[in-house]
């Protein structure tokens, strides 16, 4: 009996010790880890915009984060946007609450430092304080408006959709006319060698350059990729030829990955959903901002 007690006590003590060591390590490294993730995200964004491998980023380029929230109470729902206000001064945000039919309910200035805006917890609190009491707010997604000298050149859209197994997290880049610029698969758990091929360039590049009209109707065709097109997708031909192929295939459907039609369809329809919904939302938001003469940074 005494033996059992000592064993239990010692095992508990060693487990507690191990937990303390691991916990301390986690606390000390969590900040650096978050920073790394942020840096990686930034890198992905710049790569999508064409600044690959540490190419110099011009100073005229600016990114403006737009956070979308669903505001709901027991009677109705509306959409709230947290947008950087004025000319992008630090700490000034504007909260715009838009009804589902596209009319503005209210707009309020919100003070939030850049770091606080990045942190989900403090940002959610600020939004909750901005809406009238009795409402609940749910974070929906964030979009980044990229401007160069004040003119919009692209939108970066984060999003996720159901893949073959779990959610596929992506970041998409579209230009102001919502034509496809690029895509990065951030996280997925598709099968290696089959669905995991969605992160290969030859698959992602099929979407590049597709106009909004084609994206809205995009589908998947179960056929092997033609050899010459495949070469263009993997970048084995000259840039002019790639552009020519892009032009030739811009209204065509996506070729399904061998043995992974479901993953292909998931990505194609997921991209279609993200882009079409975003196009609608940003048009509504722009209309409201213009009507109400609200100054935002983009």
């Amino acid at each position: 009996m005494r033996d059992i007690i000592t064993i239990v006590v010692r095992l508990t003590v060693s487990c507690l010790l191990a937990a303390t060591v691991m916990g301390l390590c986690f606390i000390f490294t969590s900040n650096a880890k978050k920073h790394n993730e942020h840096v990686k995200e930034q890198q992905v964004m710049y790569e999508l915009l064409g600044y690959k491998g540490g190419a110099a980023i011009p100073e005229s380029l600016a990114m403006h984060e737009v956070y979308r929230y669903v505001i709901s109470n027991s009677e109705k729902q509306s959409i709230g946007y947290l947008v950087p206000a004025g000319h992008g001064e630090d700490g000034k945000f504007l909260f715009v609450n838009i009804d589902l039919d596209g009319t503005m309910i209210e707009s309020k200035p919100v003070t939030l430092s850049a770091i606080e805006a990045l942190e989900a917890e403090t940002r959610n609190k600020a939004v909750l304080a901005a809406v009238s009491p009795g409402n609940t707010v749910t974070f929906a997604d964030q979009t980044i408006v990229v401007t160069e000298n004040g003119n919009r050149i692209a939108y970066l859209l984060g999003g996720k959709f159901q893949g073959f197994k779990t959610f596929v997290h992506v970041m998409l880049a579209v230009d102001p006319a919502f034509s496809f610029v690029g895509m990065e698969i951030l996280e997925h758990e598709e099968d290696p060698g089959l669905g995991a091929e969605i992160e290969q360039d030859y698959f992602k590049n099929q979407f590049k350059g597709k106009p909004f009209a084609a994206l809205k109707a995009i589908d998947v065709v179960k056929a092997p990729i033609p050899d010459d097109y495949f070469k263009a997708l993997t970048g084995k031909v000259s840039d002019d030829d790639i552009m020519q192929f892009r032009e030739q295939y811009k209204d065509k459907d996506i070729y399904a990955l061998t043995g992974a039609t479901i993953s292909t369809k998931a990505v194609a329809y997921g991209v279609k959903g993200i882009v079409t919904k975003f196009a609608y939302r940003v048009t509504v938001l722009d209309k409201v901002l213009k009507e109400q003469q609200l100054a935002v940074s983009f």
């Binding site: 060693s14 487990c15 191990a18 060591v21 691991m22 390590c25 986690f26 490294t29 969590s30 650096a32 880890k33 790394n36």
Partner: peptide, 17 residues
């Protein structure tokens, strides 16, 4: 337990730095 602790610590430190 010891091995798992050190593996976790090294995993976290590598991921961070």
């Amino acid at each position: 337990l010891t091995i798992a602790t050190w593996v976790t610590v090294i995993d976290l430190v590598l991921a961070a730095y």
